[in-house]
Design a protein around this nucleic acid. Structure first.
Lengths: 146, 146
DNA sequence: ACTCTTCGGCTTTCGTAAACTGCATTGTAC
DNA sequence: GTACAATGCAGTTTACGAAAGCCGAAGAGT
């Protein structure tokens, strides 16, 4: 019941990019040092973020990464789901055939509750963008959180 | 980012009790067979639920378990937190010293967002009781969910 | 063209926690 | 007193998260 390091590192890495001058190409080495993240691990995470079009990679000398879009257009959900896939609190909310009882066709009250919890969780993450987080960090305030 | 089997089994086990006649003492063997749960594993889970006063154990011949309180008085949160402890989506929301950057004293926008997400999640689980779930299961409807 | 740099992709390793098991012990109803 | 069911503790096994390593590909600069 916790986010993985990959998600955590991915968020910090992407936030680091969002804080920079949009035109600055930032190499992995800089991010991993600044944010205290194992470089090769971050490389793997950034690969998937790159493939899904959240960040853009630049190879060669003075290469690195930039955000592919405006931070206002990247939700926290975008980042988290790219790294880990949609979060499901139970196997049965991912695919009902994973029901413990094997009663995959029946109504399950617990499953409905979990689905509702998942919806609430997603809401938080899709309502806020990288730009929001950078803004909060600057003002040290989350007054806009609601 | 998923509940453990322990939480899942625990919920199903407790729900099974909530569906029975409140005076019926149900042995582990019955629950584990009905709900398809490894008996010894369920035994371990039920021990902690018993210690925290959610269920009551009855030893000896024709022993087993009953709910310790009215299903209306047992929230889903009670059960889940007994089994797993309070859920934290990141290590840093459990204890700020676990911050990746080691900047445990500083304001962290991401942390604030995660804390908000946790609050939303808890709300869902503390607002609904075992009685609600049993009711939904009977009516096959979650109209009261909101 | 050559070379240096930085990402890309694949494989392997390591550690830890989840998931499950076994057995001896204690308590209780009959 | 014996059969049954939970208790408590000590395991084992499995799975996955979290890296680390290696080599190849692509682009920049000369």
């Amino acid at each position: 019941m916790q986010f993985t390091k990959a998600e955590e590192y991915g968020m910090f890495g992407v936030l680091y990019l969002a804080e920079q001058d949009p035109n600055k190409v930032v190499p992995l080495s800089e991010i991993s040092e600044a944010q205290n993240i194992p470089e090769k691990f971050l490389a793997k995470i950034f690969q998937s973020l790159s493939k899904s079009g959240i960040i853009r990679s630049h190879r060669g000398v003075r290469g690195g990464f930039t955000l592919a879009r405006d931070p206002k257009e990247i939700s926290v959900k975008d980042v988290l789901e790219t790294i880990q896939g949609p979060y499901h609190l139970m196997k049965c909310t991912e695919d009902q055939r994973n029901c413990t009882d094997g009663k995959s066709d029946e109504f399950c009250a617990l499953r409905e509750l979990i689905l509702e919890a998942e919806r609430r969780l997603v809401q938080v993450f899709e309502q806020h963008t990288l730009a929001d987080l950078v803004e909060w960090q600057k003002t040290k305030s989350v007054s806009q959180l609601v």
